[in-house]
């Protein structure tokens, strides 16, 4: 589904990703872990098509298409979704209208007609229940004055509404208490099926108790330095990131 080969990228002349290789197949869940500043969010942003990041080398294929050639909206229409680490607030933009626009623009780009109001509402109610989000929150301006947890839940709600093929969750667990993590994970797990895939970016092993990954990768200095199964996450939890850093200092100096 997603094939990243030797991806190098940076911003404003600063190099952040130093040759990422990653292959994600339909039905799989991958987790990327790594210390702060290792480039996790950068990778997520590059995949979603953020303009200010510059791809210097490498390729990304998504569902048979050259992902790097596509605009962010085109990527979303293809089925890529990014739950942001820091969702932005947009005063004056009604959350429901925004999501409705998104759903219908994606439908339009696939040659489908817009959802009628009743169907949209029905789907919305269903997904709201899934992530335990309230209508009053969605009637407000997009993320404006939302708590950290509410923003994250709104991200997962949007994911549920857009039904992506590949969802990238960038530290969706940070700032959430354990109940919220359970709700969010539950939402993600409901969407898992043999055609979809999930890439979970996280700091902590605890999320992976709920969203159980098939593979775990450790990102350090813009490179995947270790890959394994979920046991790797336990090892990281136990030993901290220092052992990764120590193992890799020689290479990176």
């Amino acid at each position: 589904m997603l094939t990243i080969q030797n991806l190098h990228a940076g911003i404003e002349g600063k190099k952040i990703l130093n040759g990422i290789n990653l292959e994600i197949k339909a039905g799989e869940v991958h987790a990327i872990m790594g210390p702060n500043g290792s480039g996790k969010s950068t990778l997520a942003s590059v995949l979603a098509g953020r303009k200010d990041y510059e791809v210097l080398e490498g390729s990304v294929e998504f569902l048979g298409k050259d992902l790097l050639e596509l605009s962010p909206e085109h990527r979303a229409a293809l089925g890529l979704f990014l739950a942001f680490q820091y969702p932005i607030e947009i005063p004056g933009l009604n959350t429901i209208n925004f999501i409705k626009t998104a759903v219908n623009e994606i439908r339009k780009s696939r040659g489908e007609s817009p959802l009628d109001a009743v169907t949209f509402l029905k789907r919305m109610k269903e997904k709201m229940a899934l992530v335990n989000i309230e209508q009053t929150l969605l009637s407000r301006s997009l993320n404006e004055g939302f708590s950290g947890g509410e923003k994250k839940r709104n991200e997962v709600f949007q994911m549920a509404m857009l039904e992506p093929r590949l969802a990238i969750l960038d530290e969706t667990d940070s700032g959430l208490d354990i109940d919220a993590i359970r709700i969010v994970s539950n939402g993600v797990n409901k969407l898992r099926n043999k055609d979809n895939a999930v890439l979970v970016v996280t700091h902590y092993q605890r999320l992976l108790d709920y969203i159980v990954p098939d593979y775990v990768h450790v990102l350090y200095n813009g490179r995947i330095v270790k890959s394994g199964t979920k046991e790797l996450a336990f090892e990281l939890e136990e030993r901290g990131y220092d052992f990764i850093k120590n193992e890799n200092t020689v290479e990176t100096v």
């Binding site: 979603a48 303009k51 229409a77 942001f84 969702p87 932005i88 994606i106």
Partner: peptide, 17 residues
């Protein structure tokens, strides 16, 4: 706001919209 623009686009909304 470029960040806002990217957020909306990443949800499938065309740049113009």
């Amino acid at each position: 706001n470029e960040e806002g623009l990217f957020y909306l686009q990443s949800r499938g909304i065309s740049e113009k919209t």
